[in-house]
Computed example of a mutant assay.
Amino acid sequence: MSDTPEPDVPAERLVGSDRVLAVLIELAGRPQGASLEDLARAVSSPKSTVHRALASLTRAGLAAKSGVGRYVLGDEFLRLAFAHHEARPDHQRVLPALVALAERFGETAHYAVLDGTEVVYRSKIDPPSGAVRITSTIGGRNPAHCTAVGKLLLADRLPDDAAVVAWAREHGLERRTDRTITDPDAFAAELARVRRRGYAVDDQENEMGINCLAVPAGIPAARGAEGAISLSALAYRMPLDALEDAAGQITALVAEAIDG
């Protein structure tokens, strides 16, 4: 097959598009804004080229220039992002369950999916009240092996101990806290417990002070495709044993809200 670009998609346009996207992504990581010089340095491009990319983004409303000469994400970008998130079918499907969990237990509820060795949080509902809340973000990522949602989804993807050990040796089990499981055999035993119980826990394994319990986001047979729902709690407010005591309530509440 020829590597020559099709006539209507010239090679230089692809390079330019990649550069515009690189500038947009860089802006997204700088909530306080960035100067032209900062962005040119970050994407390793001449200032004149980055300026053209910023002009294109600004015309589309995806970037804006502040009064002090710094560029930020534009309001149109934010509108599109939030509108897309609110309209996503998976968010709409799990939202009643997340709201019910947050209201019932006064803690934060998440919906997450597996992406390689990480979990991605697609939805989050904070409790209606409470001075201290969890600082997770929609779109944020964490290693799958040390999160309750990740363990639940990996237990579905990896059918037995041998598969778990092979996965752990291939990808490693990064130690995030003193409680993170880093031994492949111990991790295999943990996922075996997840399969038996039908839920997974994170005993301050990803972040000290935060406990978590995850259940399937839908009927158990479909949990791999449907993602996982978790209740994340500050350990001093809701210790792990209290979370586990509520596992049956959490599972039933999610099943009722999603499956009817």
Rank of each mutant, 00 (worst) to 15 (best):
A144I: 07
A144C: 09
A144V: 02
H145Q: 14
H145E: 12
C146F: 07
C146Q: 11
C146W: 07
C146I: 14
C146V: 15
T147E: 14
A148P: 04
A148R: 11
A148M: 11
A148N: 13
A148H: 07
V149Q: 14
V149S: 10
V149P: 03
V149N: 11
V149E: 12
V149C: 13
G150Y: 03
K151G: 04
L152V: 07
L152S: 08
L152R: 08
L153V: 05
L153S: 06
L153Y: 03
L153E: 05
L154F: 03
L154Y: 01
D156H: 13
D156Y: 05
R157S: 09
L158K: 04
L158R: 08
L158F: 03
L158E: 14
P159T: 09
P159I: 02
D160A: 02
D160M: 00
D160S: 04
D161P: 05
A162Y: 01
A162K: 12
A162P: 10
A162N: 12
A163F: 01
A163M: 06
V164S: 03
V164F: 02
V165L: 05
V165P: 04
V165Y: 01
A166S: 14
A166T: 15
A166W: 00
A166K: 12
A166Y: 01
W167S: 03
W167F: 07
W167Y: 13
A168I: 10
A168W: 09
A168P: 06
R169E: 15
R169W: 04
R169F: 00
R169G: 15
E170A: 11
E170I: 00
E170M: 04
E170S: 11
E170Q: 14
E170G: 13
E170P: 04
H171Y: 12
H171E: 06
H171A: 05
H171I: 02
G172S: 06
G172H: 04
G172P: 14
G172W: 01
G172A: 01
G172R: 04
L173K: 08
L173N: 10
L173D: 14
E174M: 01
E174Y: 00
E174I: 05
R176W: 11
R176T: 09
R176M: 13
D178L: 09
D178P: 01
R179F: 08
T180I: 05
T180W: 01
T180K: 00
